[in-house]
């Protein structure tokens, strides 16, 4: 039913268009510059014989990733189908012998490739600066950080396609995307901090785990800190939780949930898009 060749054609077209749109180019430049600046100035302030654990540089890079990557994935992804609906080009595309699922999958792949390239460019240049200035970052940690950043971006890209499918105009899609970003990145954590302030630890820990699993941005943040700083970073109160996440069953659980976050919204958008006729 689904043809790989068709998917690839659409992916390449999407990749090409995203490069043309200047959105991605702007993003790549901004992300790369920020990553460079953080690693350059962050490292130059160190007087500690070059020793580095989980510190200011990695913490700032993490914050940059958490803010910027979901935002750009949401904005680029949500405007793709909704934008084409608005200008009518989607109609033209669908007169070709391609199925709707091929269109969605192809667009996802194309955008995923474009965003991955941008992220690799940003982290690559930051890595060069770190290697040149000190080189005292743990390489495995850095690679895990990069991979988790890409996963985070793809999860939000998947969500953004769902947004794009359910909306009809570009502006509507972008507005919804920004709302989703604001909610998952900021509001959600405020609510969760409120819940975490409940005193009964036995109740709080399973609750926190649920809260983490429900928000991919939180999951990625906690995984990055666990990788970079070790479980002690979260203190003894959360030992049960962090140790569970580090154990085999915990890793499987997190992997499965991230996988669901990655392909759940995508599958849902395929399903909705195939049933709707709003273009």
């Amino acid at each position: 039913m689904m043809s790989g060749a068709n998917v690839m054609v659409i992916a390449e077209k999407e990749l090409l268009e995203s490069m043309r749109s200047r959105w991605l180019v702007t993003f790549t430049i901004i992300f790369g510059l920020l990553a460079l600046l953080i690693s350059f100035f962050g490292l130059s302030g160190m007087g500690v014989g070059g020793y580095q654990g989980f510190n200011r540089v990695t913490a700032s890079l993490l914050n940059l990733v958490l803010y910027l990557l979901p935002l750009i994935a949401l904005v680029i992804g949500s405007s793709t189908i909704a934008g084409e609906k608005e200008v009518g080009s989607l109609h033209v595309l669908l007169t070709q012998p391609v199925s709707k699922s091929e269109v969605i999958i192809g667009k996802f792949l194309g955008l995923a490739l474009a965003l991955t390239a941008s992220i690799l460019a940003g982290f690559g240049s930051a890595g060069v600066v770190i290697a040149w200035k000190t080189g005292t970052i743990n390489i495995v940690d850095y690679l895990v950080f990069v991979i988790l950043s890409i996963v985070l971006t793809l999860v939000f890209l998947s969500m953004s396609l769902l947004i794009s499918v359910v909306t009809t105009r570009r502006s509507q899609a972008v507005a919804l995307a920004i709302f989703v970003w604001f909610f998952t990145i900021l509001v959600y954590d405020f609510l969760a901090i409120g819940i975490a302030s409940l005193q009964q630890v036995t109740v709080v820990v399973p609750l926190l785990l649920t809260l983490l699993l429900l928000n991919p941005a939180d999951m990625v943040r906690v995984l990055v800190i666990l990788q970079l700083g070790g479980e002690e970073t979260f203190g003894p109160t959360l030992a049960a939780l962090t140790r569970m996440m580090g154990s085999g069953s915990g890793e499987v659980l997190l992997g499965v949930v991230l996988f669901l976050w990655l392909f759940g919204p995508l599958g849902l958008s395929v399903w909705i898009f195939s049933r709707k006729q709003d273009y």
């Binding site: 993490l62 914050n63 958490l66 900021l186 901090i193 302030s197 959360l238």
Partner: peptide
């Protein structure tokens, strides 16, 4: 908050904490 409720520490370095 971390002192009051150590479980809050899970949100270390989150945008909300910043």
């Amino acid at each position: 908050l971390m002192k009051k409720a150590p479980a809050v520490r899970l949100f270390l370095n989150s945008p909300a904490a910043t």
